[in-house]
Simulated scan of single mutants.
Amino acid sequence: MHQLTYGDVKAAADRVAGRVRPVTLAPADAGEVRVGRRDALDDRPDEPGTVWLALEFMQHTGSFKARGAQNFIQAHREAKTLPGAGVTIASGGNAGLACAWAAQQQGVTATVFLPTTAPAVKVARLRGFGADVRLVGAEYADALAACEDFAATTGALASHAYDHPLIAAGAGTLLEEIVQQVPDLDTVVVAVGGGGLFAGVATAAQHHGVRVVAVEPENCRALNAAIGAGRPVDVTVDSVAADALGARRASRMALHAAQRADVHSVLVPDDEIVRARQALWDQRRVAVEHAAATALAALTAPQPHGYRPGAGEKVAVVLCGANTDPGDLARPVDQG
């Protein structure tokens, strides 16, 4: 297994420069997050922490996945290992969209496999990025098997949603951009599914001396369980954020990054994820995925859940994606 290094992230940053949208940081409002964790015996004046929201949901295709997909294809182009059959992936979610977009940007064919149950809107969006969409079987496993067979028979380059060093390194470029804007950043808060975003961000964060808060739903805790067991293990997947964070097990690359870097694993309940997502809409008119709200929930959930920045701590919370149906966010008071 390739162990991700900071050199991988730096190389990715060079490759994606000018090809992805630089992340925008917005300061959190007073009261928007819970800050100022204090020891009861500490009588020093309370210096409030500073929290920024990293608005990565404004990235191409609506999520951070564009970074890894762009790095993946660009690296293979540089190495002259990009086959004539193009790239292929089994994913109707953010990874599939990102792969199709990056392939279109590079003039490469993308063949995306989905189960026949995939929503028509996803199929249409993938085709809008020029992808050849193949609908196979009733479940994701069927689409994945067909994708693997397609790669084996045609020579197409198989991509992965998260468990690949080029994908993870691309995701890590996000942290590079954040520290360029906040050089004295103390902590980055990021949601974790299979661990691609986490592995890249944690690898870059270790280089910069930045703490990582890895946030997962209570019932989608693949990384948390892997840290406890010392190896990737299968977990139950049952959360409102499972569409993006529902990996059954974390990658070995993610676990390695968690064991090596300054990482705090945090679990948040679904009701706090829903509340954080709603608050972003109510206060900012921003509609994000439940996965993005999972990271924010770490700073809005009451104790014993979540993470409390200490006095003076500088924190960036990654809002990683916005491919969501906003129909459930409107409230009656909004109509008038």
Rank of each mutant, 00 (worst) to 15 (best):
V268S: 06
A292N: 12
V201F: 01
Q180L: 12
G200V: 15
V237G: 04
R275G: 05
V213S: 11
D184Q: 13
F198A: 05
P217E: 15
A291W: 06
L245I: 03
A202M: 01
S239Q: 00
P232V: 02
A276I: 00
A241C: 11
V286S: 01
D262L: 11
R285C: 02
L280T: 03
V233G: 05
G246S: 09
G196L: 07
L185K: 10
D262A: 14
V215L: 05
A229R: 02
D270Y: 04
V192F: 04
V182L: 08
H208C: 03
L175M: 12
G193R: 08
A226F: 09
R275Q: 02
T236N: 14
V212R: 08
N224V: 14
V189H: 00
A229I: 02
V212K: 10
A202C: 01
Q278G: 11
H208V: 03
R211L: 05
G195T: 00
A276T: 00
H256L: 09
A250S: 13
L185V: 08
R285V: 13
A279M: 09
D271C: 01
E177C: 04
V212E: 10
D186K: 10
R284G: 12
L175G: 12
P232Y: 04
Q259V: 01
L267F: 08
A258Y: 00
L223C: 04
V288A: 05
D282Q: 11
A287R: 05
D243F: 09
A257P: 11
V233K: 05
A199E: 15
T203N: 06
G200I: 15
I178T: 14
Q283T: 13
V210L: 07
L267R: 07
